[in-house]
Amino acid sequence: MSILVLCEHDGGTFKKTATELLGKATGLAGALGTTVSALVLGDAPAASLGAYGATKVFQVSGDFSSYDTDVAVAALRAGIDAAAPSAVLAPASFLGKDALPRVVAQLGTGQGTECTDLRVDGGQIVGRRPIYAGKAYCDVRVGKTPAVYTVRANSFAQPAAGGGSAEVVAVPFSAPTPRLTLVERKRPETTVVDLTEADRIVSGGRSVKSKESYDSLIRPLAAALGATPGASRACVDAGYAPHDHQVGQTGKVVNPSLYIACGISGAIQHLAGMRTSKVIVAINTDPGAPIFEHATYGLVSDIFETCPALTARIQALD
Protein backbone atom coordinates (compact mmCIF):
# COMPACT_ATOMS: atom_id res chain seq x y z
CA MET A 1 0.00 0.00 0.00
CA SER A 2 2.38 2.67 -1.23
CA ILE A 3 1.99 6.38 -1.91
CA LEU A 4 1.40 6.89 -5.61
CA VAL A 5 2.61 10.21 -7.07
CA LEU A 6 1.23 11.47 -10.37
CA CYS A 7 4.29 12.71 -12.27
CA GLU A 8 3.27 15.00 -15.12
CA HIS A 9 5.57 15.68 -18.02
CA ASP A 10 5.72 17.93 -21.02
CA GLY A 11 6.57 15.83 -24.06
CA GLY A 12 8.91 13.62 -22.00
CA THR A 13 10.40 16.26 -19.70
CA PHE A 14 9.10 15.87 -16.16
CA LYS A 15 7.51 18.98 -14.66
CA LYS A 16 8.96 20.48 -11.51
CA THR A 17 5.86 19.34 -9.63
CA ALA A 18 6.81 15.70 -10.35
CA THR A 19 10.11 15.81 -8.44
CA GLU A 20 8.72 18.21 -5.83
CA LEU A 21 5.93 15.72 -4.99
CA LEU A 22 8.25 12.70 -5.07
CA GLY A 23 10.55 14.45 -2.59
CA LYS A 24 7.67 15.15 -0.20
CA ALA A 25 6.19 11.66 -0.68
CA THR A 26 9.53 10.09 0.26
CA GLY A 27 9.44 11.85 3.62
CA LEU A 28 5.80 10.88 4.23
CA ALA A 29 6.46 7.27 3.21
CA GLY A 30 9.36 7.10 5.67
CA ALA A 31 7.07 8.18 8.50
CA LEU A 32 4.38 5.71 7.41
CA GLY A 33 6.77 2.82 6.81
CA THR A 34 5.74 2.45 3.19
CA THR A 35 7.22 3.10 -0.26
CA VAL A 36 6.73 5.65 -3.03
CA SER A 37 5.52 4.73 -6.52
CA ALA A 38 5.06 7.04 -9.46
CA LEU A 39 2.33 7.19 -12.09
CA VAL A 40 3.33 8.35 -15.55
CA LEU A 41 0.98 8.74 -18.49
CA GLY A 42 2.66 8.10 -21.84
CA ASP A 43 6.21 8.30 -23.07
CA ALA A 44 8.75 9.72 -20.59
CA PRO A 45 11.97 8.45 -18.97
CA ALA A 46 10.12 6.67 -16.15
CA ALA A 47 13.08 4.81 -14.60
CA SER A 48 14.84 8.15 -13.93
CA LEU A 49 12.25 8.94 -11.24
CA GLY A 50 14.06 6.41 -9.04
CA ALA A 51 16.62 9.14 -8.41
CA TYR A 52 13.90 11.04 -6.51
CA GLY A 53 12.69 8.17 -4.36
CA ALA A 54 10.21 6.19 -6.50
CA THR A 55 10.77 2.44 -6.17
CA LYS A 56 8.23 1.54 -8.86
CA VAL A 57 6.87 3.55 -11.75
CA PHE A 58 3.51 2.58 -13.23
CA GLN A 59 3.67 3.77 -16.80
CA VAL A 60 0.40 3.83 -18.70
CA SER A 61 1.11 3.29 -22.37
CA GLY A 62 -0.48 5.53 -24.97
CA ASP A 63 -0.34 8.93 -26.59
CA PHE A 64 -1.43 11.62 -24.16
CA SER A 65 0.11 14.57 -25.99
CA SER A 66 -3.36 15.99 -26.68
CA TYR A 67 -5.49 16.28 -23.55
CA ASP A 68 -8.89 14.61 -23.37
CA THR A 69 -10.84 14.30 -20.11
CA ASP A 70 -12.29 10.83 -20.81
CA VAL A 71 -8.89 9.45 -21.84
CA ALA A 72 -7.14 11.04 -18.86
CA VAL A 73 -9.77 9.68 -16.44
CA ALA A 74 -9.47 6.14 -17.83
CA ALA A 75 -5.66 6.30 -17.81
CA LEU A 76 -5.50 7.59 -14.22
CA ARG A 77 -7.93 4.86 -13.21
CA ALA A 78 -5.85 2.16 -14.95
CA GLY A 79 -2.70 3.36 -13.19
CA ILE A 80 -4.36 3.59 -9.77
CA ASP A 81 -5.92 0.14 -10.17
CA ALA A 82 -2.54 -1.33 -11.11
CA ALA A 83 -0.70 0.35 -8.22
CA ALA A 84 -3.46 -0.14 -5.61
CA PRO A 85 -1.99 2.65 -3.42
CA SER A 86 -3.14 3.79 0.01
CA ALA A 87 -2.76 7.43 -1.08
CA VAL A 88 -2.45 9.37 -4.34
CA LEU A 89 -0.60 12.70 -4.56
CA ALA A 90 -1.10 14.81 -7.66
CA PRO A 91 -0.37 18.39 -8.71
CA ALA A 92 -3.30 20.83 -8.56
CA SER A 93 -2.86 21.26 -12.33
CA PHE A 94 -5.52 21.33 -15.03
CA LEU A 95 -5.52 17.53 -15.09
CA GLY A 96 -5.61 17.40 -11.29
CA LYS A 97 -8.68 19.61 -11.32
CA ASP A 98 -10.41 18.43 -14.50
CA ALA A 99 -9.93 14.66 -14.52
CA LEU A 100 -8.98 13.57 -11.01
CA PRO A 101 -12.33 14.38 -9.31
CA ARG A 102 -14.06 12.05 -11.79
CA VAL A 103 -11.69 9.25 -10.77
CA VAL A 104 -12.36 10.04 -7.10
CA ALA A 105 -16.11 9.79 -7.80
CA GLN A 106 -15.62 6.42 -9.56
CA LEU A 107 -13.63 5.10 -6.61
CA GLY A 108 -16.08 6.51 -4.06
CA THR A 109 -13.25 8.10 -2.08
CA GLY A 110 -12.39 11.71 -1.22
CA GLN A 111 -9.97 14.41 -2.31
CA GLY A 112 -8.15 17.21 -0.51
CA THR A 113 -7.60 19.94 -3.10
CA GLU A 114 -4.60 22.22 -3.53
CA CYS A 115 -2.87 21.49 -0.22
CA THR A 116 0.14 23.63 0.62
CA ASP A 117 1.40 21.19 3.24
CA LEU A 118 1.14 17.47 3.93
CA ARG A 119 2.07 15.65 7.11
CA VAL A 120 1.61 12.29 8.79
CA ASP A 121 -0.72 12.25 11.78
CA GLY A 122 -2.19 9.14 13.42
CA GLY A 123 -0.74 6.83 10.77
CA GLN A 124 -2.43 8.82 8.03
CA ILE A 125 -1.60 11.60 5.60
CA VAL A 126 -3.25 14.92 6.49
CA GLY A 127 -3.31 17.95 4.21
CA ARG A 128 -3.26 21.62 5.24
CA ARG A 129 -4.81 23.93 2.72
CA PRO A 130 -5.82 27.54 2.15
CA ILE A 131 -9.57 28.17 2.03
CA TYR A 132 -11.54 31.37 1.42
CA ALA A 133 -8.81 32.39 -1.03
CA GLY A 134 -6.13 32.04 1.63
CA LYS A 135 -7.90 34.10 4.31
CA ALA A 136 -8.12 30.93 6.43
CA TYR A 137 -6.61 27.45 6.49
CA CYS A 138 -7.88 24.03 7.49
CA ASP A 139 -6.79 20.42 7.69
CA VAL A 140 -8.25 17.88 5.30
CA ARG A 141 -8.16 14.16 6.02
CA VAL A 142 -9.40 11.55 3.59
CA GLY A 143 -10.63 8.50 5.49
CA LYS A 144 -11.10 6.14 2.54
CA THR A 145 -8.59 4.35 0.30
CA PRO A 146 -7.00 5.61 -1.79
CA ALA A 147 -6.83 8.98 -0.06
CA VAL A 148 -6.34 11.57 -2.83
CA TYR A 149 -4.57 14.90 -2.29
CA THR A 150 -3.63 17.54 -4.83
CA VAL A 151 -0.85 19.99 -4.05
CA ARG A 152 -0.25 23.60 -5.11
CA ALA A 153 2.94 23.94 -7.17
CA ASN A 154 6.05 25.21 -5.32
CA SER A 155 4.75 24.11 -1.90
CA PHE A 156 7.77 21.89 -1.21
CA ALA A 157 11.49 22.11 -1.83
CA GLN A 158 12.95 20.37 -4.87
CA PRO A 159 14.80 17.23 -3.73
CA ALA A 160 18.37 16.53 -4.80
CA ALA A 161 18.72 13.64 -7.24
CA GLY A 162 20.04 10.44 -5.67
CA GLY A 163 21.42 7.32 -7.26
CA GLY A 164 18.32 5.12 -7.36
CA SER A 165 16.64 3.67 -10.41
CA ALA A 166 13.01 2.60 -10.38
CA GLU A 167 11.40 -0.58 -11.61
CA VAL A 168 9.08 0.33 -14.48
CA VAL A 169 5.75 -1.50 -14.58
CA ALA A 170 4.03 -1.12 -17.94
CA VAL A 171 0.26 -0.65 -17.55
CA PRO A 172 -1.53 -1.79 -20.70
CA PHE A 173 -4.19 0.70 -21.76
CA SER A 174 -6.67 1.05 -24.55
CA ALA A 175 -8.07 4.55 -24.63
CA PRO A 176 -11.85 5.06 -24.66
CA THR A 177 -13.37 7.03 -27.52
CA PRO A 178 -13.35 10.67 -26.41
CA ARG A 179 -16.77 12.29 -26.23
CA LEU A 180 -15.35 15.73 -27.01
CA THR A 181 -13.52 16.68 -30.19
CA LEU A 182 -10.66 19.14 -30.06
CA VAL A 183 -11.25 21.72 -32.78
CA GLU A 184 -8.45 24.17 -32.13
CA ARG A 185 -5.65 24.88 -29.70
CA LYS A 186 -4.76 28.54 -29.32
CA ARG A 187 -1.27 29.06 -27.93
CA PRO A 188 -0.04 32.34 -26.49
CA GLU A 189 2.60 34.21 -28.49
CA THR A 190 5.32 33.66 -25.94
CA THR A 191 5.95 30.43 -24.14
CA VAL A 192 6.70 31.13 -20.52
CA VAL A 193 6.01 28.97 -17.49
CA ASP A 194 2.34 29.09 -16.53
CA LEU A 195 1.59 31.58 -13.73
CA THR A 196 0.29 28.78 -11.49
CA GLU A 197 3.62 26.95 -11.74
CA ALA A 198 5.96 29.93 -12.00
CA ASP A 199 8.73 30.34 -9.44
CA ARG A 200 9.06 34.08 -10.17
CA ILE A 201 6.34 36.52 -11.17
CA VAL A 202 6.37 40.24 -12.01
CA SER A 203 2.90 41.80 -12.02
CA GLY A 204 1.74 45.21 -13.15
CA GLY A 205 -1.26 47.19 -11.96
CA ARG A 206 -3.57 49.87 -13.30
CA SER A 207 -0.75 52.34 -12.77
CA VAL A 208 1.15 51.13 -15.88
CA LYS A 209 -1.42 53.27 -17.72
CA SER A 210 -1.06 51.65 -21.18
CA LYS A 211 -0.31 48.42 -22.99
CA GLU A 212 2.88 50.04 -24.27
CA SER A 213 4.15 50.70 -20.75
CA TYR A 214 3.15 47.20 -19.63
CA ASP A 215 5.27 45.91 -22.49
CA SER A 216 8.18 48.25 -21.75
CA LEU A 217 8.16 48.13 -17.90
CA ILE A 218 6.76 44.77 -16.77
CA ARG A 219 7.74 42.35 -19.56
CA PRO A 220 11.46 43.30 -19.69
CA LEU A 221 11.78 43.03 -15.90
CA ALA A 222 10.07 39.63 -16.04
CA ALA A 223 12.33 38.53 -18.90
CA ALA A 224 15.46 39.65 -17.03
CA LEU A 225 14.41 37.56 -14.03
CA GLY A 226 13.19 34.57 -16.04
CA ALA A 227 9.80 35.34 -14.50
CA THR A 228 6.25 35.05 -15.80
CA PRO A 229 4.45 38.38 -16.26
CA GLY A 230 1.19 38.84 -14.35
CA ALA A 231 -1.31 41.63 -13.75
CA SER A 232 -4.02 42.95 -11.48
CA ARG A 233 -7.59 42.87 -12.65
CA ALA A 234 -7.64 46.63 -13.14
CA CYS A 235 -4.66 46.25 -15.48
CA VAL A 236 -6.35 43.44 -17.42
CA ASP A 237 -9.74 45.17 -17.56
CA ALA A 238 -8.08 48.29 -18.98
CA GLY A 239 -6.62 46.13 -21.76
CA TYR A 240 -2.96 46.63 -20.79
CA ALA A 241 -2.38 42.88 -20.33
CA PRO A 242 -4.22 39.79 -21.61
CA HIS A 243 -6.88 38.03 -19.48
CA ASP A 244 -4.76 34.97 -18.79
CA HIS A 245 -2.25 37.23 -16.96
CA GLN A 246 -4.67 38.07 -14.15
CA VAL A 247 -3.66 37.08 -10.65
CA GLY A 248 -6.29 36.99 -7.93
CA GLN A 249 -9.67 35.84 -6.80
CA THR A 250 -11.05 35.65 -10.33
CA GLY A 251 -7.67 35.06 -11.96
CA LYS A 252 -4.82 32.67 -11.26
CA VAL A 253 -3.79 31.58 -7.80
CA VAL A 254 0.00 31.64 -7.75
CA ASN A 255 2.67 30.43 -5.33
CA PRO A 256 6.10 31.64 -6.52
CA SER A 257 9.20 32.15 -4.42
CA LEU A 258 9.38 35.74 -5.71
CA TYR A 259 6.41 37.99 -6.53
CA ILE A 260 7.07 41.57 -7.56
CA ALA A 261 3.96 43.79 -7.46
CA CYS A 262 4.51 46.93 -9.55
CA GLY A 263 1.98 49.70 -8.93
CA ILE A 264 -0.61 47.35 -7.41
CA SER A 265 -2.62 48.59 -4.43
CA GLY A 266 -3.07 45.15 -2.84
CA ALA A 267 -6.86 44.82 -2.89
CA ILE A 268 -8.20 41.82 -0.98
CA GLN A 269 -9.09 40.05 -4.26
CA HIS A 270 -5.56 40.50 -5.62
CA LEU A 271 -4.04 39.22 -2.36
CA ALA A 272 -6.30 36.19 -2.70
CA GLY A 273 -4.21 35.08 -5.65
CA MET A 274 -0.67 35.72 -4.41
CA ARG A 275 -0.53 35.89 -0.62
CA THR A 276 1.28 32.54 -0.27
CA SER A 277 4.24 33.82 -2.35
CA LYS A 278 7.43 33.30 -0.33
CA VAL A 279 8.95 36.72 -0.98
CA ILE A 280 6.75 39.66 -1.97
CA VAL A 281 8.29 42.87 -3.30
CA ALA A 282 5.98 45.89 -3.54
CA ILE A 283 6.77 48.97 -5.58
CA ASN A 284 4.19 51.71 -5.06
CA THR A 285 4.19 55.52 -4.79
CA ASP A 286 1.62 55.45 -1.98
CA PRO A 287 3.25 54.52 1.36
CA GLY A 288 -0.25 53.72 2.68
CA ALA A 289 -1.01 51.12 -0.03
CA PRO A 290 -2.28 47.90 1.61
CA ILE A 291 0.19 45.81 -0.43
CA PHE A 292 3.00 47.03 1.87
CA GLU A 293 1.39 45.20 4.83
CA HIS A 294 2.14 41.94 3.01
CA ALA A 295 5.45 42.84 1.43
CA THR A 296 8.77 41.30 2.43
CA TYR A 297 10.48 44.31 0.83
CA GLY A 298 8.72 47.58 0.15
CA LEU A 299 9.84 50.40 -2.16
CA VAL A 300 7.92 53.67 -2.04
CA SER A 301 8.78 54.75 -5.56
CA ASP A 302 7.53 55.27 -9.08
CA ILE A 303 7.40 52.17 -11.28
CA PHE A 304 8.30 54.24 -14.36
CA GLU A 305 11.66 54.93 -12.72
CA THR A 306 12.12 51.81 -10.61
CA CYS A 307 11.26 49.03 -13.08
CA PRO A 308 13.82 50.06 -15.74
CA ALA A 309 16.49 50.60 -13.04
CA LEU A 310 15.79 47.18 -11.53
CA THR A 311 15.77 45.55 -14.96
CA ALA A 312 19.17 47.04 -15.78
CA ARG A 313 20.57 46.05 -12.37
CA ILE A 314 19.38 42.41 -12.81
CA GLN A 315 20.75 42.26 -16.35
CA ALA A 316 24.12 43.39 -15.01
CA LEU A 317 24.28 40.44 -12.57
CA ASP A 318 26.66 37.72 -13.58
Binding site: Y137, V140, R141, G143, E293, A295, T296
Partner: peptide
Protein backbone atom coordinates in the same frame (compact mmCIF):
# COMPACT_ATOMS: atom_id res chain seq x y z
CA UNK B 1 -14.67 10.49 3.02
CA UNK B 2 -13.00 13.90 3.36
CA UNK B 3 -13.27 15.67 6.70
CA UNK B 4 -12.21 19.22 7.45
CA UNK B 5 -10.84 20.21 10.86
CA UNK B 6 -8.44 22.61 12.59
CA UNK B 7 -9.72 25.75 10.88
CA UNK B 8 -7.36 28.61 11.61
CA UNK B 9 -5.39 31.58 10.46
CA UNK B 10 -2.99 31.60 7.51
CA UNK B 11 0.59 30.84 8.57
CA UNK B 12 2.16 34.12 9.75
CA UNK B 13 4.35 36.01 7.24
CA UNK B 14 7.76 37.12 8.41
CA UNK B 15 7.73 40.87 9.05
CA UNK B 16 8.64 42.92 6.03
CA UNK B 17 10.99 45.84 5.65
Amino acid sequence: AATYTAYGEPPPRPKGR
